[in-house]
Design a protein around this nucleic acid. Structure first.
Lengths: 227, 227
DNA sequence: ACAAATTTAGACAGGCTTGTCCAATTCGTC
DNA sequence: GACGAATTGGACAAGCCTGTCTAAATTTGT
């Protein structure tokens, strides 16, 4: 695959397949049992390989852990940016478009397997590997928030929103649409599709009450009239 | 020592002191190292007692862990309800009163030692002890949210806020005032006083833009005029 | 000051885990 | 079908940890 005279620069197919299989199993076990409680034999069994193969591929437990975190970070970031690319820049119905976006974000990035695993590893072992997780922090949330803030700024500039500080608004948007899922996240659970939708609906409604510009805020007008 | 005619129903003074000392040290070590990585010798050393004393008091590692979680849950709940009792029911300046309340909540309940420890233990070991953490969930967040929702409902009834669903508003209030502290929480860190204040200020401003009734919303009027 | 209870330090067995080594086997490629 | 690389299973040493036991030292209440 890299460069080479003959087509053998990379090992046989199943070699790479086993590698990812091991990383996947390791992610699962590290999350369930914690770093100290994770058992290489169990990881090997769950990956369907022998223990020796784990050591052949990754050297030792710590290197394997690093590989897991790097892998999860990479995949999660890819998912997040792919989803941000679907942000409703020219909304037909701002409220329902933002709700749909929030649901996509949750389903594809936060609540899926990789997202839950990465979150738990960061929470549990973040303090033990400061530089590893500092890297994650820059590549992940730092860039995510900037990208999202830029999209909100654009919506505001187009007159769909009334925002003072787009960075603050972006963080508050995420906080609001996840407001009702916090406990589930804390316990490592997976919210149902219905819970995700309800939290997003309530969060977007409040977000638009706070930041909606007058011309598109049927919801807000109703709320004010009702008050 | 156990039963007796004379006033000795409870053990000698330092006996109980050592007990709490052990629980405190155990909380710290369980959080740093995780359940599997926590070492009884280290806990004993950090508590300033011998290993045997740990076993005398708590039986085994699992019982010690349970005692730690129960202890933290109890203290955190006490702190949270004490703080909710300071909710500004008759606000002089609604915005600054809510900011001050949010800062108190964070400082006394969420960011302090007990709060951080409990959060981390729940995140790391919640799945391993379902009934223990189900108990926490009912006693803690469940009651907290209800109590807070009741306070917000009262503010709305008095005309200070315009709220449809007080339960949703209470959860969103907490989500907003903590919006900028999420990452710090994730990594187990302790936000500075300044960060707590800024997050609370921004969160309350957005909350009032969404839920403030017209008569007390100088901030909101300014924002709208500015738009 | 005395007697009972508690604490301590250390040794200890049993179990589990990591990481290495090696011979036999399987797999992919030519 | 044959060659070479990767994989396997199992044995293995070394280390660590839990939980128990003991005898000596200390603390507590009276």
């Amino acid at each position: 695959m890299k460069p080479g005279v003959s087509p053998d620069t990379f090992p046989p197919r199943s070699h790479e397949a086993k590698r990812t299989s091991v990383v996947d199993a390791a992610a699962s076990v590290f999350c369930r049992e914690g770093y100290a409680g994770a058992n290489i034999d169990l990881i090997a069994a769950e990956a369907g390989v022998s223990r020796q193969t784990v050591y052949n591929h990754h050297g030792d437990k710590e290197k394997l852990f690093m590989a897991v975190v790097r892998d999860l970070t990479e995949r999660c970031n890819a998912g997040i940016f792919a989803t941000i690319a679907t942000f409703p820049d020219q909304p037909a119905d701002l409220e329902s478009d933002l709700v749909a976006f929030a649901v996509r974000m949750n389903r594809n990035c936060i609540c899926n397997r990789d997202g839950r695993f990465l979150r738990k590893l960061i929470q549990a072992e973040g303090e033990r590997y400061p530089e590893l997780f500092a890297e994650w922090r820059e590549q992940g949330p730092g860039r995510t928030w900037s990208a999202l803030a830029a999209r909100f700024a654009r919506l505001a500039y187009a007159g769909h929103l009334s925002i003072d500080d787009p960075d603050v608004a972006a963080r508050q948007f995420l906080a609001l649409v996840n407001a009702e899922l916090q406990i589930t996240f804390m316990l490592g659970g997976m919210p149902t599709e219905e819970e995700v939708l309800r939290s997003a609906t309530n969060g977007v409604r409040t977000f638009l009450r706070a930041f909606g510009s007058r011309k598109t805020t049927s919801v807000r007008q109703a709320a004010l009239t009702h008050a």
